[in-house]
């Protein structure tokens, strides 16, 4: 139980940072793209393992996720962020499907990565989560002021000597690392809602970026804990419930806000 609680804290920290970065960068869809790229990496590791070449999923998933996140960043320079992400998404999904179609008899493992299962977090997953969280917090902490400047005022940031291309690449890499770290717990398909809904709510109500990070952390942690609690009573996936809670909260909050106006 302690391991699960620790995992929830680490997942919430990662989602707090990366969810906010994605929302501020107006690249929410990147989460979906990156999680499916990670899935392609997972599929390749499962395929190699099934062929007798034992492979851990984390390294390949991270490589795929970062590579496709960078592809999205590069492609967006020629058009816009939506097009860049869409191209990266389509390509990574196609690769994932190709690898998955080559695998025989391990659908349960694929299912675990598609929809995740917080209650089945292993010691190995916890190590990956800890390592990724430390890396993401370090990078985010070191570059915090630059990120905020670049996200708020890209032209002004460039004119102050900030390298926007490098910063964008690091931002995308942070998001990719976070998504890979939580994919086993929340799943590739559900990652989108659990990353974006809490940050989108927080952005509307926060009085500062730091407050937005704290609110996101709180909403994510509560959604995950409620998801787990309900799943102990009813035989339903905890991560699916957490995503359901976060998304419903988003819809309720914004509906109430609209009614108030």
């Amino acid at each position: 139980m302690v391991e699960i609680f620790l995992a929830l804290i680490l997942i919430s920290l990662l989602i707090s940072i990366s969810g906010n970065l994605a929302v501020f960068r107006k690249a929410s869809f990147l989460i979906a793209s990156v999680s499916h790229s990670a899935l392609a990496g997972v599929a390749l590791s499962l395929l190699l393992t099934s062929l007798g070449f034992e492979q851990d999923y984390f390294l390949l998933a991270t490589l795929f996720a970062i590579a496709f996140a960078l592809l999205a960043s590069l492609t967006s320079r020629f058009s816009d962020i939506d097009t860049g992400v869409a191209i990266s998404f389509a390509l990574s999904m196609a690769i994932a499907v190709v690898f998955l179609s080559l695998i025989r008899g391990i659908s349960a493992k694929i299912w675990a990565f598609l929809f995740g299962e917080i209650l089945l977090v292993t010691e190995q997953d916890l190590i990956y989560l800890t390592f990724s969280t430390i890396l993401v917090i370090l990078l985010f902490g070191l570059l915090y002021n630059k990120f905020i400047f670049f996200l708020f005022d890209p032209e002004g940031a460039k004119a102050s000597g900030i390298n926007p291309k490098l910063l964008d690449i690091i931002l995308f890499a942070i998001i990719a690392t976070s998504v890979v770290a939580v994919i086993r717990s929340v799943g590739a398909i559900l990652a989108y809602s659990i990353f974006i809904a809490p940050s989108a709510i927080a952005k509307e109500f926060a009085q500062s970026v730091k407050q937005s990070l704290i609110i996101t952390f709180g909403i994510t942690l509560i959604s995950l804990m409620l998801g787990i609690s309900v799943s102990l009573i009813f035989p339903v996936s905890a991560s699916a419930l957490a995503a359901l809670i976060a998304s419903t909260l988003y819809i309720v909050v914004f509906s109430l806000r609209r009614l108030k106006k």
Partner: peptide, 16 residues
């Protein structure tokens, strides 16, 4: 010092 057009700013960010 450069003062950019306000339209280029991400005005939805919660910044004081």
């Amino acid at each position: 010092s450069y003062v950019p057009q306000r339209s280029s700013l991400a005005l939805d960010l919660p910044l004081t």
